[in-house]
Amino acid sequence: MSQTRIVEVRAGILKKNDELARALRARFEQAGVYVVNLVSSPGTGKTQFLERTLADLVAAGIRAAALVGDLETDNDAKRLARSGAPVRQINTHGRCHLEAEMIGDFVGDWDLSSLDFLFIENVGNLVCPASYDLGEALRVALLSVTEGEDKPLKYPTMFNSADVALITKMDLAEACEFDREAAHAAIHEVRPGMTILEVSSKRGTGMAAWMTLLQERRAAWQSHAKSVARP
């Protein structure tokens, strides 16, 4: 009879991605660029929201750029480029999420210090992107009023991993008989205390609050980065 023995390992399966993400985060901090990862299911309105965000930032003289992930096509990059901000398309060719390595490849030659904000539009998927750190400073989970109010309960891993929840397509709320209280309650059930914003990218409602949040979070992040950089 053969003898077996047990060896302890303690190796994280996402170690490679986590290490790359950590290196990216350090690079982003050094360059002073605040990176926002947008995650949601397909059809939540991520691209339209990002298009509006980029246009508003550019109009305010704030330097913003975007990386957009899709399985195929560069349709979203073309749409986003209309804002005037630099945009790059990442095609994952079947992969259901973005990984830190892809971000590294696509920002490789980018002069990040010329940017204040970099937005990453993840692949539309409420499951897999939750597990992959992209080195972002802020993760925003989007939920549209046309989806069920209980979506956060169905995809708790994603909503729990986010820092901010954003309810989109508020202009359709009435037509969809959107139950605002129920949606907020569901978000807080899986992520107590999370900041929730409500926007209509089409009408521009709620965009001012979003702009304020971005600026405030970036300022807090900058002062934190400075305080940890000096021991």
């Binding site: 003898q3 077996t4 023995r5 060896v7 390992v9 190796a11 994280g12």
Partner: peptide, 11 residues
């Protein structure tokens, strides 16, 4: 958590 805790190996 998502990590390998241990391996059972021979010999």
């Amino acid at each position: 958590e998502l990590e390998i805790a241990s391996l059972e190996i021979e010999p």
